[in-house]
Structures are given as C-alpha cells and as structure tokens.
Design a protein around this nucleic acid. Structure first.
Lengths: 112, 112
DNA sequence: TAAATATATGAACAATTATTCAAATGAAAG
DNA sequence: CTTTCATTTGAATAATTGTTCATATATTTA
C-alpha cells in the first residue's frame, strides 16, 4: 500500500492523456470476442469461405448448437453476417477488418 | 442435428485448409489477454510511459494488488517487461507489436 | 535491528461464460 | 398435414477468471 504517489507528476500527466474508460472498455470487448478458440476457428473458416452452421460444426469438431450460440455472439458483435436460403443459414465475415485483426494476432503468435 | 454434411466437398476442403488447433488456440490466448479492460488500460498507459505498479494503480483506479496480478499475466504473455530499481518495479511494453495490436482493436471500435 | 515501503502472492468469492441437452422454430418435401 | 431437416433457443452445469483481503517478501531507511 502506498501513502502517496511515487511519481506524482508523471502519473497525473499519463492519467490525463488516458483514453476514456468507455473506449478502453469497448476495445477490451472486441478482443474478448476473439479470445475463444471456437470463435477463432469459426472466423478463420469463414475467412476461407461462406459456410452454414453444420459445415462449421463439422470443420471445428463442435456441436451445431455450440456453433449456433457462438455465431449469435459473433453476429451481435458485428463480426459476421448471415443470409438464409431455405432451411440453411449461410454465414460470412462482415468486413476486411475482421481478417486484419485475426492476421495481426496470428503474426504475434508466430513471431514468438 | 444433421445426418450428413450439407456441403461435403466444400466443408472437407475448408477443413483441410484450416490452421492447426494449436495455433488457433494460441491466437485466441493472445486476444484473451487483451480482452480485459484493466489490462487494456495498463497497456495503453504503458504505451505512454514506463510506469511502476502504484502509478498504474492510480492511473487505472485499481488496487495495487489487482494491478500486480494483471501485470503478472501480461508478463507471462510476454507483452510487458520489467526492471527493478530499489523497491520500485518499472514496467514497460515488450515491443511495438503490442501497440499495433491495440491500435487495430481501437480502430475497429472507432469505426463502428 | 526495527520500522516503513513497494510489490507480490495465495486463498476465497463472485461473476462471467462455453458447452450440453432438450425442446422449439421455421422451412421444405413427401 | 405430417415428417424431416437445419437452425435456434433456454436452462443447467462446469470451468475460468478478476478482485479483494490478508499476508509475505524484498529493499530502504531510521
């Protein structure tokens, strides 16, 4: 426990330059979406092709229910979009940004 | 539940092109680190300056214990490094990659 | 050596979350 | 219209995780 600030001027200066709690919270929220391996698998598969729920279940070795739950999360986060064709729902990535985020994460891992 | 694969050829082709489970798991692990607002705050603060634990506690409005726990996680993930000077431990970002990851996440949030 | 200080650590607790299972939709086909 | 099929949904469960609190460690100072 500290009685006083150790580097008062520096710490206050940095505190003033901080981004808003709200923005930093939102940034964390986006990363949280990518922070699950099932979702990462889905994202990478959709990077390769538009796919339906049962395709994704097969590709990721998960149940269709699990995939459907995760797809809902990805859709709410605006990372994927879907279109319906009869009984089948096709999912794809919303935009290039999703791929960019994935690739930067991948680079980081591969460079260690 | 599906008896058979709906798009057998496509699904098998995509499955063959998938990255290894291990790599995708590791990618998720990195994003998981960024998926907490306290850690994101720490990372952004350290982007501005090298700081000690109590500075970070002040800047992020958290307890020193909480910050210390999070710094351990960040250090294990090789996202931050530290140096000791007397009683004080100074933390800083490990490399530019950490900043890049943060910035891409920030861009994504700000573009919505 | 004892007191003070900065940080670290471990256990406990609460909260969040991913999966499973069972059941419900919604659409096509028989 | 009944059955089949693809997907969705909700509740339950198990596992993970961030914070707190108390205590420990390490370093400096009195």
């Amino acid at each position: 426990m500290n009685k006083d600030l150790i580097h008062e001027k520096l710490a206050k200066r940095v505190k003033n330059k901080m981004l808003s709690d709200e923005l930093l919270f939102d940034v964390a929220e986006v990363f949280k979406i990518f922070g699950d391996s099932t979702r990462v698998k889905i994202i990478y598969a959709l990077k390769l092709s538009e796919l339906c729920v049962s395709d994704l279940a097969f590709i990721t070795n998960s149940s269709e229910s699990a995939i459907s739950h995760q797809l809902r999360i990805l859709k709410q986060a605006k990372l994927v979009k879907s279109r319906k064709e009869g009984k089948v729902v096709y999912y794809s990535l919303k935009d290039e940004h999703v791929i960019k985020l994935f690739e930067i994460g991948r680079e980081h891992v591969e460079e260690l």
